[in-house]
Design a protein around this nucleic acid. Sequence first.
DNA 1: ATGGCTTGAGTGTCAAGA
Length: 257
Amino acid sequence: MTACRIATWNVNSLNVRLPHVLDWLVAEKPQVLCLQETKLEDHRFPFDALREAGYHAIHSGQKTYNGVAVLATTPPAEVIAGIPGFDDPQRRVLAATVGDLRVICTYFPNGQAVGSEKYAYKLRWLAALRAWLSGEVAAWPRLALLGDFNIAPDDRDVHDPDAWRGQILCSEPERDAFRALVDLGLEDAFRKFESGHGLYSWWDYRQAAFRRNLGLRIDHILLTAPLAERCTACRIDTAPRRLERPSDHAPVVADLT
DNA sequence: ATGGCTTGAGTGTCAAGA
């Protein structure tokens, strides 16, 4: 596949956001779009509306929480849902082959608070993801890991680093886990092009956080070296965050030659 | 001040997100 656009977007309920997603597919025409937090059971997923929009879709969902989907202009193949060998009822991982790409759509656990049970689950989940991806990166030279990582990799990705230091999404064990993924041979596509502060992918719904740009960069696209070499652009599209009833996350988009 | 919005579940009010 050449001249390929891949993207990731935490939609915070696909029921609510389907109109935004359909409009965005028309505007940006990605070949692949990974969605997180669909909050739908599989039988309620809008396969028909997406097919009419020109997209094949696979979904691993559940009621109320989590849920991941991969939309693509060609049929996804060799689908895996969940981290193999990691028993988990939470639907957070969906992998598929699209064209010459291996795509892994992920919704990392939030962790709630450092030291909580949910934080311990997040660290266990991160370790299991890394162990599995070690083999996947070896098996698939053209692999892209996209999703809501719920980790701000360093202080440039945080609007108030002092306030967030050591807090959830920014703690050192979480950042160590992000670096461990990079160390498998993956590159943060966004940082290939942007080295500065103040560019975020999530803003709290409260306190007019988006208008004041009080955000975090927690949604990422990581690429193996052969794909990073082909990557000509990576950006965060803030346009959907300005719409009525927006998701609190913005899409992240990467273009590959 | 551990709040502030938003969503889903479910019809009163709470869990969860980040």
